[in-house]
Computed example of a mutant assay.
Amino acid sequence: MTLRLDDAETSALRRRADLEERSMQEIARAAIREYIEHHSRADLIDGVLDRELPRFAEALDRLGR
């Protein structure tokens, strides 16, 4: 895989890597892992809510009054 960044993104990534004393690749890979974990959790929560909220719609409506 090739990741193409514009000049500003490359510069920001390089500064971050220098600050953390890590490689640009390490920083990018960590960012990708965090993105996937965050979105995987959000997708799981959304799925549960889509399935379960209808079961409790009436109770939630009553509580909201």
Score class of each variant (00 low, 15 high):
residue 24 M to H: 06
residue 60 L to Q: 08
residue 15 R to C: 12
residue 52 E to Y: 04
residue 30 A to I: 02
residue 41 R to H: 00
residue 26 E to R: 06
residue 39 H to I: 05
residue 58 E to R: 14
residue 31 A to I: 05
residue 20 E to I: 06
residue 41 R to D: 01
residue 32 I to D: 12
residue 42 A to R: 14
residue 34 E to I: 03
residue 63 L to S: 09
residue 63 L to H: 07
residue 42 A to Y: 09
residue 38 H to G: 01
residue 19 L to V: 12
residue 39 H to E: 09
residue 38 H to C: 01
residue 50 D to K: 15
residue 17 A to P: 00
residue 63 L to K: 08
residue 18 D to P: 02
residue 52 E to H: 06
residue 19 L to E: 15
residue 26 E to A: 15
residue 23 S to D: 09
residue 25 Q to A: 14
residue 42 A to C: 05
residue 45 I to A: 10
residue 52 E to A: 11
residue 21 E to W: 06
residue 63 L to A: 15
residue 36 I to E: 08
residue 38 H to T: 08
residue 62 R to V: 04
residue 49 L to T: 07
residue 23 S to Y: 12
residue 39 H to G: 00
residue 29 R to Y: 08
residue 20 E to K: 11
residue 48 V to T: 04
residue 22 R to S: 13
residue 21 E to I: 07
residue 52 E to C: 06
residue 25 Q to H: 13
residue 60 L to P: 02
residue 54 P to D: 04
residue 58 E to I: 04
residue 31 A to L: 15
residue 54 P to I: 06
residue 45 I to E: 05
residue 30 A to N: 09
residue 55 R to G: 07
residue 27 I to A: 10
residue 42 A to S: 09
residue 63 L to F: 07
residue 60 L to C: 08
residue 25 Q to R: 12
residue 19 L to Q: 15
residue 43 D to N: 04
residue 49 L to N: 11
residue 19 L to K: 14
residue 37 E to W: 00
residue 30 A to V: 04
residue 40 S to N: 10
residue 29 R to D: 14
residue 16 R to K: 15
residue 41 R to L: 03
residue 51 R to I: 04
residue 57 A to D: 10
residue 62 R to Y: 01
residue 55 R to N: 13
residue 24 M to P: 00
residue 40 S to P: 01
residue 31 A to N: 13
residue 58 E to D: 12
residue 46 D to N: 10
residue 29 R to L: 13
residue 38 H to A: 09
residue 63 L to D: 05
residue 40 S to A: 14
residue 32 I to W: 13
residue 33 R to G: 02
